[in-house]
């Protein structure tokens, strides 16, 4: 473990908690893409299958349980409890256009052709593009509540910090995983325009307005 990965995990945890609190406190999931949350739940489910078979550390197990529980709780809030506030008309990204290439790529580019490894690879590739429906929804509605933009900033920062973690591990532990690195860079790059808007606007107290 290193400071970059720890900060990354904390940022990730923060993002998930911000989102849960936003929906629970405002009793509304307006502006939130249910499709992205579904993809995140799929990501954690397929990645953490080794939760019971492969013990890494108490921290690792604890975080996996928290991420799984929080992602399913978020889905329950969006599609069940507060489904009346779910903005279906703006959450229209065709996720099959993500699932197909992710599935093909995970079958072609993986470390080992075993079910567990293919599912892990699938979850890595899926996570890289899982935020697209959310970013698409923000661009469609033209704006996002400030709490939603804080959520996106924390979520985007987490994988950016993981990139620093991979640089650290390459030099200090000669460890690298090209699949995670490639997907992590793509994932972080997708947030770039949002990061720009967040830094230049939201941090100055303005609303996040995307050029419609």
């Amino acid at each position: 473990m290193n400071i970059f990965r720890l900060l990354g995990d904390v940022s990730h945890l923060l993002a998930i908690i911000i989102l849960l609190l936003k929906i629970w406190k405002t009793r509304s999931c307006a502006g939130i893409s249910g499709k992205s949350q579904l993809l995140f739940a799929l990501t954690y489910t397929t990645r953490y299958l080794d939760l019971v078979t492969n013990f890494v550390s108490v921290y690792n197990t604890f975080m996996k349980v928290v991420f799984l529980a929080a992602s399913y709780a978020t889905i329950w809030l969006i599609y069940m409890k507060f489904r009346a506030t779910y903005d279906q008309n703006h959450d229209t990204f065709r996720i099959e256009f993500l699932l197909l290439p992710v599935t093909i790529l995970s079958l072609v580019a993986n470390h080992e052709f075993t079910l567990i490894e293919i599912l892990w690879t699938w979850s890595i590739y899926l996570e890289a593009v899982a935020i697209l429906p959310q970013l698409f929804m923000v661009s469609k509605t033209g704006e996002a509540e400030s709490i939603t933009s804080h959520y996106l900033f924390a979520l985007g920062s987490y994988r950016g910090l993981y990139i620093l973690n991979w640089i650290y591990r390459y030099y200090m532990e000669s460890y690298y995983d090209l699949i995670a690195i490639f997907a992590g860079i793509l994932q972080t790059v997708l947030y770039c325009d949002f990061f720009y808007l967040y830094i230049t606007k939201v941090l100055r107290g303005q609303r996040l307005q995307l050029p419609a």
Binding site: R47, D50, N54, M63, K64, H111, D177
Partner: peptide, 10 residues
């Protein structure tokens, strides 16, 4: 091949 026996990252 990239040696990543077990995935120890989240």
């Amino acid at each position: 091949r990239i040696e990543s026996a077990t995935h120890d990252e989240l």
